[in-house]
């Protein structure tokens, strides 16, 4: 089996990087949209909506991502739905991401001073108008850095999906390690791949954090 060249290894790993990137982007975009809905539910005036969103967040933050993936992947086949590893992975990571983003963003919304709610309420703005024109623009500024920071967690979280058979970077790596008998080289390259994806994000996040603190509020 040693007719696999280093170039073959790198080429296959690069393919894996693309799948990891694709899964991360999918989870981040869909998770962001779901997280936004969760945020609105979490601060809604309807009590049952708030409780439902809270329960959702508790469940997905309080259990390992791996268990969530198992339950989605194996559970779906129990009820007769054959989800491909890709679909199960995308669904699992989306749910996971939405729970965290919803909660991060709620914190940002709640850090906007109460006086902003009162002033906009006294001007007769509805709840959604308050959010759209007054609260979210201010919360967004606070949210950018922790959101980009969390995206690093999403990228690393995709590694777990290799266990349900989705062929991303880690899965590609283990298959190559088995074929080449060079696990140290292969997994070293795998780690390098993750680092190449995550490092720019964390640098970006740090820079945003600094500029959010250093500049004026508008």
């Amino acid at each position: 089996m040693n007719d696999i060249s280093t170039w073959d290894v790198v080429r296959n790993l690069l393919d894996g990087v693309l799948w990891t990137l694709g899964l991360s982007l999918t989870a981040f975009v869909l998770g962001g949209l779901t997280g936004l809905a969760l945020l609105f539910a979490r601060i809604a005036s309807t009590a049952w909506l708030r409780k439902l969103a809270k329960a959702y967040i508790e469940v997905f933050q309080g259990t390992p991502l791996l268990m969530q993936l198992f339950i989605i992947f194996f559970g779906s086949s129990l009820i007769g739905l054959e989800l491909s590893p890709w679909l199960a992975a995308a669904l699992g990571l989306t749910l996971f991401t939405s729970a965290y983003l919803g909660e991060i963003w709620r914190g940002c919304v709640e850090s906007v001073p109460k006086g902003q709610w009162e002033a906009s309420a006294s001007l007769a703005l509805s709840h959604f108008e308050q959010m759209r024109y007054v609260i979210l623009p201010q919360a967004l500024k606070i949210a950018i850095a922790p959101t980009v920071g969390f995206s690093v967690q999403v990228v690393k979280g995709t590694a777990v999906t290799s266990i349900i058979g989705f062929v991303e970077l880690t899965k590609t790596g283990s298959m190559l390690a088995n074929a080449t008998y060079q696990p140290f080289l292969v997994f070293g390259l795998v780690a390098l791949g993750y680092f190449a994806l995550c490092y720019p994000l964390s640098v970006f996040s740090r820079r945003l954090e600094r500029s959010a603190h250093g500049t004026r509020a508008h």
Partner: peptide, 8 residues
């Protein structure tokens, strides 16, 4: 506390 909208 005035409560002007700081981003506007």
């Amino acid at each position: 506390q005035f409560n002007l909208f700081p981003h506007l």
